[in-house]
C-alpha cells in the first residue's frame, strides 16, 4: 500500500513539473518548428507568394503520408502538369535515414528528372515510397483541379 501511495505521489509531482515546463516552452517550440518548416521550403520556388506563384502557373500542394516514424508532411510544387520540386517540411523519420530528404540528396531528383524515372531507395524504402505516394496524391489533386489558383469567372 505504501509503495502505491509513494509512486502515485511521485507521478503527480512529475506530471505537474512536466505541465509547467510545457506551458513555459510550448510557444517557443512551435515558433522554432514553424521557422524550420519555412526554412525547409527554401529553394523549392523563388518566392512563397501565392499570387506570384499563380501567375507563373505553379501550384503548391501539402500532402500527408505515413512514413516510417509517423506522419510526413510533403509539399509538392507542380507547374504545367509536371513536378517542379518536392520538400518534406515535417517528419519524424529515424535520424541518419532522413538524409534522403535533404534537397541535395534523393528528393532533389524530382526537380531535374522525370517522375517515372525516380524509384524508391533501399535502406530508406518506407520513407521514399511515402514521398512517391505523396507526389502521386499531389498530381491527382492537380489533375482534378483542386489547386489554389482557381480562376474566378
Amino acid at each position: 500500500m505504501k509503495s502505491v501511495l509513494t509512486f502515485t505521489l511521485l507521478c503527480i509531482a512529475s506530471a505537474s513539473l512536466l505541465a509547467l515546463a510545457n506551458v513555459h516552452t510550448n510557444s517557443y517550440i512551435q515558433q522554432n518548428i514553424e521557422k524550420q518548416e519555412l526554412a525547409r521550403l527554401e529553394g523549392l520556388v523563388d518566392e512563397l507568394d501565392r499570387e506570384l506563384l499563380c501567375e507563373q502557373g505553379i501550384e503548391l500542394f501539402e500532402v500527408e503520408r505515413r512514413g516510417y516514424g509517423g506522419e510526413m508532411y510533403v509539399v509538392v510544387a507542380i507547374q504545367d502538369g509536371s513536378v517542379l520540386g518536392v520538400r518534406v517540411v515535417r517528419h519524424s523519420e529515424t535520424p541518419g535515414f532522413d538524409e534522403v530528404l535533404s534537397p541535395d540528396d534523393w528528393i532533389g531528383r524530382f526537380a531535374v528528372e522525370e517522375l517515372e524515372g525516380i524509384d524508391a531507395v533501399t535502406r530508406a524504402t518506407v520513407t521514399t515510397s511515402a514521398v512517391l505516394l505523396a507526389v502521386e496524391d499531389a498530381m491527382r489533386l492537380y489533375e482534378s483541379g483542386l489547386g489554389e489558383c482557381i480562376e474566378t469567372p
Partner: peptide, 13 residues
Amino acid sequence: TTVATMYMQAFAY
C-alpha cells in the same frame, strides 16, 4: 530528461 529536452527545443533549437 523530458524537461531538459523541452528547454533545449525551445531555446537551442
